[in-house]
Design a protein around this nucleic acid. Structure first.
Lengths: 118, 118
DNA sequence: TGGGGTACTAACAAAAGTGTAAGTAATGGC
DNA sequence: GCCATTACTTACACTTTTGTTAGTACCCCA
């Protein structure tokens, strides 16, 4: 999320890579927690604290960062209720819901092939 | 590929994450170049040098690393011919070929949604 | 003898990603 | 007044990923 140097090969490569629709899509769900978060949210709205409980070792910082990134990318909608203590709910956008069947297939792939290599 | 400390939260999380078939699958194709390499190889066998030319800014080191990882994961088959100068060919395994239709869909997702968010 | 071609490898450096630990605001209930 | 609750934020440290640069082996051919 931080500003990047604009002249590095790292950045050139990133630009090149994002031009491809496929890598563009994969980048959206990259990172350690995003796919897991999306999977959980497929079942419906969840509060920050509920999501946190789903992942035993995630830190609040990480969860916040990932949710913010997902929001930025238009995959998650964030609703804040003006209450105390605060209540914030997260839900998938249509765009993210479209990942459903794809995730299903990826998951099947994982299930089928994880045994074949040790 | 380097040895990791076995006691970090980073590692605990990784273990947890890999237990999920979905993230297991996504991890196989994670990283900057793997999907692109697989895409190219879908068209057929390629030599190291040919692959290199496909990606304007990839370094030899990166290409080697990614190919080795793919080989490790059983996604790519590497064939060395005993010639001078050396000739090495890479091709997808069945396991990797099974990604074909999934990549197709991800690519469509990318094409459809990249306009909606700037 | 020396250069060209191919597919690498090694040591190092920069960048990004992830985790740790502590602290914040707001308000209702005791 | 003080504490608990929730959803964060901040500053820092560590780990992994990616890139830079230089070098290797091998044999053929001029």
């Amino acid at each position: 999320m931080a500003a990047r140097k604009q002249n590095s090969t790292y950045t050139s490569n990133e630009k090149y890579i994002v031009e491809c629709d496929l890598t563009y899509a994969v980048n959206k769900i990259g990172g350690r927690w995003k796919i897991l978060i999306i999977s959980k949210l497929e079942k419906g709205k969840m509060r920050f604290g509920e999501l946190k409980k789903e992942f035993p070792y995630i830190t609040e910082r990480m969860l916040t960062l990932q949710l913010r990134a997902l929001e930025q990318d238009g995959l998650v909608k964030r609703t804040v209720y003006a209450e105390v203590p605060p209540r914030v709910e997260y839900e998938l956008t249509e765009m993210a819901a479209a990942f459903g069947p794809i995730f299903q297939q990826l998951s099947e792939w994982g299930g089928k092939h994880r045994k074949s290599v040790n």
